[in-house]
């Protein structure tokens, strides 16, 4: 949930990278961390197991443009993909202003993509959150794989449940599409905040 502070003239949003286990959520944050100036970002915090699986969350705070005198800040979190970390995942998802759903283009992971996607929608439904009321960007990651599923095939599996979703293709380890995904979600989240509350002006 956004926090607008008139004194520090800051507006802070929380964006969470969720999705299929091992699809590249942490790799997205690592790339963003590597490619922003030190002055515009925090350290990258990763709480992972010895084998680099996310255990609790990764965290990266990034600063962006001034929006009519308010500095915009985005807190980026990833959640653990593994099913047995359901409880910690839900702690991190709490209060999110927008989500990136990272899906894996590896054909062998197609069933896992759908399982994670359905799990997300079950959570949304259980909490009476209409998917349209929470900005979500769908990222097809690992497009560099030689046998990556064709985009149309991935569209078919996801878009039947959400035809208007913004989709970004990416290859997080080489950085392709990572900033496009982040910018797409930031736009959706700020626009939504603006249209609901009109406290963030359009003049940037």
């Amino acid at each position: 949930m956004a926090i607008l502070n008139d004194e520090s003239r800051e507006i802070t949003f929380k964006l969470v990278y969720t999705g299929t286990p091992m699809a590249g959520k942490t790799s997205n944050l690592a790339w963003i961390h590597q490619r922003l100036d030190n002055s515009a970002r925090s350290d990258l915090i990763t709480l992972a197991t010895m084998s680099d699986r996310t255990l609790f969350f990764d965290f990266l705070a990034v600063e962006s443009v001034l929006i009519n005198g308010y500095r915009s800040r985005f807190q980026l979190y990833t959640v653990p993909g593994q099913a047995n970390y359901n409880a910690t995942r839900q702690i991190v998802l709490r209060g999110a202003d927008g989500l990136v759903f990272v899906a894996d283009s590896d054909p062998r992971r197609a069933p896992d993509n759908l399982a994670a996607w359905h799990a997300l929608h079950q959570h949304l439904a259980a909490n009476r959150t209409h998917p349209d009321s929470l900005p979500i960007v769908l990222q097809y990651n690992k497009r560099d794989l030689p046998n990556a599923l064709p985009r149309e095939v991935m569209d078919q599996s996801f878009r039947s449940s959400a035809p208007h979703l913004t989709v970004c293709e990416a290859s997080a380890t080489s950085g392709t599409g990572v900033f496009n995904t982040l910018n797409s979600l930031a736009r959706l989240v700020v626009s939504r905040f603006h249209s609901l509350h009109a406290r963030v002006p359009a003049s940037l």
């Binding site: 922003l36 962006s64 915009s72 950085g175 910018n183 736009r187 509350h197 002006p201 003049s203």
Partner: peptide, 27 residues
């Protein structure tokens, strides 16, 4: 309320302006 907010007057072209902003640029 939104209309009373001093910032509300900027409301008009929000979608248009925000729709093209790059919040982050890769170095």
């Amino acid at each position: 309320p939104p209309r009373a907010s001093p910032l509300a007057r900027h409301r008009l072209n929000a979608e248009e302006v925000l729709g093209t902003t790059d919040f982050f640029r890769e170095r």
